[in-house]
């Protein structure tokens, strides 16, 4: 665990250096283009996190092992944090490059809906007190929410094609050095995700232990 934390921290710093200093400045977009590295890295990990929610949800319903539920709950929360970062860095990029804070670009829009779905997941969990019921109901929502995302994406894409947008995202031709910086950043954020999941599941474990103790104290 300690080694994982150190490696993740080192990778994050390396990613920061490669993204901010080492990678060449974009010929057209200039320095702002560097937002791209943490933006894509968090986006990739948000998708990873929500996929883990799906896996944990299915596995919980199959095995009824609470560890799966803890994994799903932890991953959902971290996924929401990452998606929040995507939704914060995205508009900054949009403002700098396209001149507006927000466009109803399919990818932006789908990410926003994704955020709403998993915030809903967390609100749902908070609204159910019994642990086994919370795990079961959240798992069903975790599965449905995930299945829904591709349909949302298709519908949003179609919606944009019949409402043509003025602003076209410029194509990013990645130089090799940029690609290296991007991959290092993605790897660094993935390690960070692993660390966060480890911390968050431990929190969930202690929380369950506290709840069990409180129950015992009440019945004793």
């Amino acid at each position: 665990m300690r080694i994982l934390i150190r490696v993740a921290a080192a990778a994050m710093i390396a990613g920061l250096y490669l993204g901010l200093v080492w990678a060449p400045e974009d010929a057209i977009l200039g320095q702002v283009q560097r937002i791209f590295y943490p933006h894509v890295a968090t986006a990739w990990n948000a998708y990873l996190a929500f996929t883990v929610v799906l896996v944990g949800s299915i596995a919980y319903l199959r095995t009824r092992n609470e560890a799966w539920d803890r994994l799903a709950a932890s991953s959902a929360e971290i996924g929401v944090v990452f998606t929040t970062l995507v939704l914060l860095t995205g508009p900054i990029w949009a403002r700098a490059v396209w001149g507006v804070w927000w466009t109803w670009d399919p990818r932006l829009t789908t990410t926003l809906i994704l955020w709403f779905i998993y915030v809903g997941y967390l609100v749902l969990r908070a609204a159910i007190d019994q642990p086994d019921r919370r795990a079961r109901i959240a798992a069903v929502f975790g599965i449905i929410g995930f299945i829904d995302v591709p349909i949302v994406h298709f519908s949003v894409t179609w919606w944009r094609t019949i409402h043509p947008s003025v602003i076209r995202p410029g194509k990013l031709d990645l130089e090799p050095a940029m690609l290296v910086a991007l991959l290092v950043n993605v790897a660094a954020f993935t390690l960070l995700y692993a660390v966060l999941v480890a911390c968050r599941t431990r929190l969930e474990r202690v929380s369950a232990a506290v709840a069990a103790l409180r129950e015992r104290l009440r019945s004793a």
Partner: peptide
């Protein structure tokens, strides 16, 4: 049915339903 398992189900339902309903909202209106 899902929200009925939670506290304040009537508050929770629109919150859970509308994000999932986005494809219908778009496609039906269009």
């Amino acid at each position: 049915a899902l929200a009925a398992n939670a506290r304040a189900a009537e508050l929770l339902l629109p919150l859970l339903l509308f994000p999932v309903l986005v494809p219908v909202v778009i496609a039906a209106v269009q």
